[in-house]
Amino acid sequence: MISVVAYGLTVGAILYIISIGLSLTFGTMRIVNFAHALIYTMGAYVLFTMLRVTGGNFVLAAIVGVAAAVPLAWAIERFVIRRLYGQSIDYAIIGTYAVLLIGVDATKWIWGATPLPLSDPIGKYVNVLGVDLPVYRLVVIALAVLIFAGLELFFRRTVVGKIVVAGLEDKDAVRSLGIRVDSYFSLVFILGSCLAALGGILYAPITTIHPYMGTHVLLLSFAVVLVGGLGSMRGTLVASFALGMVMAVTGRVWGPAAEAMVFAVMAVVLVLKPIEV
């Protein structure tokens, strides 16, 4: 029971870290960004390479992995997404999906298609109510909570954050005050991408690194964003942990149904509360 909860919380934490960027990108730019999955995958691969370069320093390798997302996200925003602003949402889907496909092939070309295993960077266990839990997973959960708190502070306390919140509600009204709101949105895009990379980095030691890891998780992440409400920061947190628990509990009963159940929940939520765009 404890291990099911711990697993659910870990998956929830990872889902949150990935999905918040996706949700904010949709909320601000009205763009469904498939390239988010590429950044997630790249984060894990850069981690893998940097672990070798640094002789196993996980924290340093993770920082480099997150930092590597900045130029990549900047380029995707500048050269793909910015050209699709105001166009039909289909173009954004096709454009960013193309980036994802190119990126996946580039990954295979650089690192090969064979899955790469990573060991638990902490390797210690802690006993919670008689069950041994990996400390690493608890760290991941704590990080997700810290990131949530940090984002809340950023969006509620800083003027830049408030401008983004205002822009989420009424972009043109922000522009009419003479604020170049697109550059703030780009900033949010890069921030969200860094979190996607962090998600890939944190999840890598729990599974394996492979070229399609992002594509796979992206679908779950879409489910989170739809259930949590597009552009809703708190909704994304709640939906991530709820769906993480759904996966953990279903997986315990019947493994193959774990992900299917996430989409079943998503379908039910969409039927009960259709999206207003």
């Binding site: 003027v159 408030k162 401008i163 919140v165 205002a166 509600e169 009424d170 043109d172 009204a173 922000v174 522009r175 009419s176 005050l177 003479g178 604020i179 170049r180 709101v181």
Partner: peptide
């Protein structure tokens, strides 16, 4: 945004304030 920076302000029809922010935050922006 560039027109606004040049010295024009447009107040939209339908009284569009930033509803989720406080009045103070609306002014802050």
């Amino acid at each position: 945004e560039e027109v606004a920076r040049g010295g024009i302000r447009y107040v939209f029809q339908d009284k569009r304030v930033f509803t989720k922010l406080t009045v103070r935050e609306n002014i802050e922006i």
